[in-house]
Amino acid sequence: METFTLYREHLGQFLDVCQEQFRVQIPVSAGDGRYRFSPLAGHGVEALALEYHRTLLPPKKYFLLPEETICTFDQKGYHPVEVAEEPFLLFGLHPCDLHGLRIIDQFFSTPYADSAYQSRRKNALIVGLGCLPDDKCFCATMNTQQIMGGYDLFFWDLGERFYIQVGSEAGHGLIHKAREMFHDVVDEDRQDYLETLYQRRHLLTPKVDVADLSQIMEANPDCAVWDELGAACFACGACTMVCPTCTCYDIFDRVELDGSGRRCRQWDSCLFRDFDRIAGEVHFRSDRSDRVKNRFFHKEVVHVKQHQRSACVGCGRCQEACPAGIDVVSVLSRVHASCA
């Protein structure tokens, strides 16, 4: 793997160079100890929050927009809309979010490609950033604390310099736009990088036992935990909005007075009561517990069946967002314990 180092004081300059070609997005503080991805142009490099743990919304917001127009219509028919092809660069994605992106990249390419998602995705450069966990992170439980590939560049913070891994030709191209700022890696850099991994590894230990979780859930679908969760959950859908791998959307028409309009899609949630309603007011999962269970089964059973991995990446956003205080780690552990 191609590797470089970059001195900390040169990071701003490098991002400025990136800015010439890409709309650069960085993690910035949103107050109250929370963070969001936001344009560098609006904040300046001093706003870059290298120490952030998680953003409010995951990077999916750049690819599957919270709301977008699918097509327009008028008296003549349905017309395609152009997806803005402006290239952008997402700086500072942690391994969990890179895993999340990898999961939804695959999701939106089969069995048909989602053309809007894919055209935004191919216009995006992804720069990863090494991280240290807080009390809500459970990537080590979900085995997403590291990733091989899935980024153009990856930055490891070694203190006064970054250790940078190049993951793609596009990433290589980016380095060579400002080659004079980057240094070839020497043994000392490599030692420091490995030392950083060592330190980090000891902070990242699994929080609960999830061995055989899919098998346990499948064997006992009527576990009492789902009813308890159904009673606690407000079905507000916050967890699904902030989830890096939740992709459900609703399709609807916005109409102008002259009868023309736009067909739109918007983030939707499988926890909403009307999510599966069909004509005649028929519901299939009218119980909240059924809907909560459906969501957990999708992440932990069906996704495992299809892709040999859980669709939960352990980012901790859902428990931060949940007004009922539902904590996914304790859910998994209760399911694991009570069903075993």
Binding site: Y249, D276, N294
Partner: peptide, 24 residues
């Protein structure tokens, strides 16, 4: 089976029965 198909391509999630897409 009748479910709420919206996208028809297994993405929007509405027609899932036990997380399988009724539309696909």
């Amino acid at each position: 089976f009748e479910r709420r198909m919206e996208c028809g391509i297994g993405h929007c999630g509405h027609c899932a029965i036990s997380c399988r897409s009724t539309c696909q």
